[in-house]
């Protein structure tokens, strides 16, 4: 392992584990400023994690090990996802490979764990959130796989490190397929991070919750794991967006240097969409994301025509 790849690996692990809550914090802070509030500062998610860490967990009566194990599985799956998604081209493989489609599997695993825990509690609100989340995931997963497929076809590999290299530099400007894939991926980001117009992260009304619904019963460290996992989910999809679908330079060091800028811009973009868009009617969301999948499909066709 060269010094370069070692430093990329260290940045990737430390950044993913420690800095991912910052992404949520920056987004919330930017949103507060846009809405004319002072906001709690970008470090608020850390304070919440510390508060939750000190509290005791609560077991729901009549639940099994499924309920107790779910937060651990969710956090472990997202931890593996952080190891899987490289932050720059020189990133070494950290034991879990770097395959784009394995990432889709890990995201599905964390979703499933939360949803079966919802069944374990038999809480109506939790199940409502779970059934909505899984319904949307049908369309989100299709859009995710198709948009990653666009990038993989352009780069000629599904290895994410190779994808970052294959889309670096001027590719974005000369390959319309990537831009179309980026549009689809933007919708995937909004859905996977549970942001408006798909979901409302600030809601306190059970009936409107999607992601917050299934985790309603958790407290203490369990809840801390789940909140961190949500932050890790932000990290994974935003890093992919920054290093694949946004313009990024060729060299590893340049990529590392520009990553914070891209991530910051993406957080602000999320804050802007959250501010200007209202939450959609839940049954219209599949249509929106379905359109995203269709755009990604169009991207693949564009690429096919271009290379034919």
């Amino acid at each position: 392992m060269t010094s370069q790849s070692a430093s990329v690996a260290v940045t990737q692990i430390a950044g993913g584990l420690a800095l991912s809550p910052l992404l949520i914090g920056v987004t919330q802070q930017a949103k507060a400023r846009l809405q004319g509030r002072r906001g709690a500062g970008p470090l608020q998610p850390y304070r919440e994690l510390r508060r939750l860490w000190g509290k005791s967990g609560v077991d729901v009566e009549g639940t099994t090990f499924v309920y107790r194990l779910a937060p651990v599985i969710v956090a472990a799956a997202m931890g593996a996802a952080i190891l899987l998604v490289p932050i720059a081209t020189g990133a070494p493989r950290l034991g879990v490979g770097q395959d784009a489609l394995v990432l889709a599997g890990l995201l599905a695993l964390s979703r499933l764990a939360v949803c079966i825990a919802a069944w374990d509690t038999s809480n109506g609100f939790a199940l409502q959130g779970a059934s909505r989340d899984l319904t949307l995931s049908v369309f989100v997963e299709a859009a995710l796989v198709l948009s990653l497929a666009v990038a993989a076809l352009v780069a000629g590999t599904t290895d994410l490190s190779g994808v970052i290299a294959g889309t670096a530099g001027g590719h974005l400007w000369t390959t319309p397929a990537l831009a179309l894939g980026g549009v689809a991926f933007a919708l995937v980001i909004v859905a996977e991070t549970g942001r408006q117009p798909v979901d409302n992260p600030d809601t306190h009304l059970e009936l409107t919750m999607i992601y917050e619904g299934p985790v309603l019963e958790y407290a203490g460290r369990d809840q801390a794991y789940l909140q961190w996992a949500l932050a890790a989910r932000h990290w994974v999809v935003l890093v992919l967006a920054a290093q694949v679908f946004l313009p990024h330079p060729v060299g590893t060091w340049w990529q590392l240097a520009l990553l914070p800028v891209s991530l910051g811009l993406l957080c602000i973009a999320l804050a802007v969409t959250e501010t200007v868009l209202a939450k959609m009617r839940i049954l219209l969301v599949p249509r929106l994301i379905g359109v995203g999948a269709a755009v990604a499909l169009l991207g693949i066709v564009t690429w096919l025509v271009e290379t034919a």
Binding site: S56, G57, V58, D59, V60, E61, L69, P71, V72, I73, A75, A76, A77, G79, A80, L83, L94, G95, V96, G97, V102, T121, S122, N123, F125, L216, E217, A219, G220, R221, D222, Y225
Partner: peptide, 27 residues
């Protein structure tokens, strides 16, 4: 994957500790 997910899961399970409030009914 098995080692990473299993190992992380085991670590998190230990870190989770055993301090629990009394079981409560589903809300």
């Amino acid at each position: 994957l098995l080692v990473v997910v299993g190992g992380l899961g085991a670590l998190l399970w230990i870190a989770r500790g055993s301090r629990r409030a009394a079981p409560s009914p589903s809300w």
